[in-house]
Nucleic acid binder design. Structure first.
Lengths: 233, 233
DNA sequence: CAGTGGTCTAGACCACAAG
DNA sequence: TTGTGGTCTAGACCACTGG
């Protein structure tokens, strides 16, 4: 006796998941509404809401007011990809980190960058080429443009002791960004900088970040051969 | 005259974000506890909790019982990467989709696959090589292993009309998976199948999915040159 | 031990959208 | 119009963990 009834939102969530997996509720089916489930599970409606909302956020349920809740027909899986600061990524593997600024200048960017950064023709940006090393070996090569209008103070910042990435993360809040992932073949420049062979396949990440008024920075990271980005679903 | 005070959890969240961005609360700082914020914002503690929990989930706050809530020192940005069914990805660009099964057999997998799928030596798995085409041109090449023990019925399924990926998504619920992203150089086999040149850099995705008892499937997707995966932060 | 976040409840009102 | 999810509240107890 005793054995207090235990219906946390996680209990509810687990049971709902079980029913979906057991196909008691099939993709496309409507499930009972919150009030009914609350009665069935002997808990408050808010508790059911918490459980179902969480499942909806991960894409397993579709919820709409008035219509109700149904099992997602096409469970689009979402992986959350964490984007660490490169130094942390390297140190996290137990390797030593070092970085070098290869060039730092003010320059008018090429058209492609100008489009991505939404600046006017002829406007100069800060251009920074850096190399990050793990245990002394080239790890990733960064080609970065920064809009000084969006980042007051960047011109006087010391970007040799702290990488531009870290300086920006620590000093410039941003609202959003985009991120893309592709592959390229190492040419002479990449082979030289990354100490690899021409023709090696390299992972390339292009990333921009912006705040409400400006595109802050746009960077292309070119990784040494063998790089692999990993995540769990 | 009314003008009822309006303090939704999103209002609270927005204000907290503003303070973080304005550096009123700096990285590493403790912020007031839930009860205090509830008083300040004139709302219930649960409302503050909802706002802060959401920010913690996205990595901007660190919360610990007894210790309190602090602004994350190292805001690890997380991108959510949605993993669509290839057919949807292609059709979403307005291209036509077609796929072909190149080979389908039962076979003992190589050691690497056996390790990933956690099967015993000598156990046969289903092995499936498929090519997906966009507007008639090779788009991605899939090398997939499926554990029939985890998927009763897969041996009799018709995987030529519906791709293995879609069949699995529709018929086999899974609990988790992993996902990795790398680059490789096209060899003779890849060049032939994807109709590209040897030496081209190709994007490679390795993915496994499992349920509580088995690894269900493990697949390597090798994309034709030019593939780019994109996401927003 | 005691302070903080984590969760649950019962009830209420609201916002949205299907019919 | 009306049913369903979305949210808010005031209060309560719990769970974890720092001091």
């Amino acid at each position: 006796m005793s054995g207090r009834e235990f219906n946390s939102w996680q209990t509810v969530q687990t049971e709902v998941l079980r029913r979906i997996n057991a196909r008691e509720w099939k993709p496309g089916d409507f499930i009972p509404n919150e009030a009914e489930l609350a009665v069935e599970f002997g808990c408050a409606r808010a508790t059911v809401n918490r459980a179902l909302r969480s499942l909806a956020e991960s894409g397993l349920l579709d919820r709409r007011r008035k219509a109700g809740t149904r099992v997602a027909v096409n469970p689009v899986r979402k992986a959350t990809l964490s984007i660490p600061v490169i130094r942390h990524e390297i140190e996290g593997k137990g390797q030593s980190y070092r970085h070098t600024v290869l060039t730092q200048e003010r320059a008018v960017p090429p058209a492609e960058i100008r489009a991505r950064m939404r600046t006017e023709p002829g406007v100069q940006l800060m251009h920074l080429v850096t190399l990050h090393m793990a245990d002394g070996k080239p790890y990733v090569f960064g080609n970065r443009w920064i809009n000084p209008k969006a980042v007051p103070g960047v011109e006087t910042a010391d970007l040799s002791s702290q990488s531009a990435n870290e300086w920006l993360v620590a000093n410039v809040p941003f609202e959003g960004g985009d991120f893309s992932f592709s592959a390229m073949t190492a040419g002479t420049q990449e082979a030289e900088i990354l100490a690899c062979r021409q023709g090696d396949a390299l992972v390339v990440i292009d990333r921009s970040t912006w705040n409400t008024t400006h595109v802050i920075t746009s960077v292309r990271l070119t990784f040494a051969p063998g790089y692999r980005m990993h995540t769990e679903i």
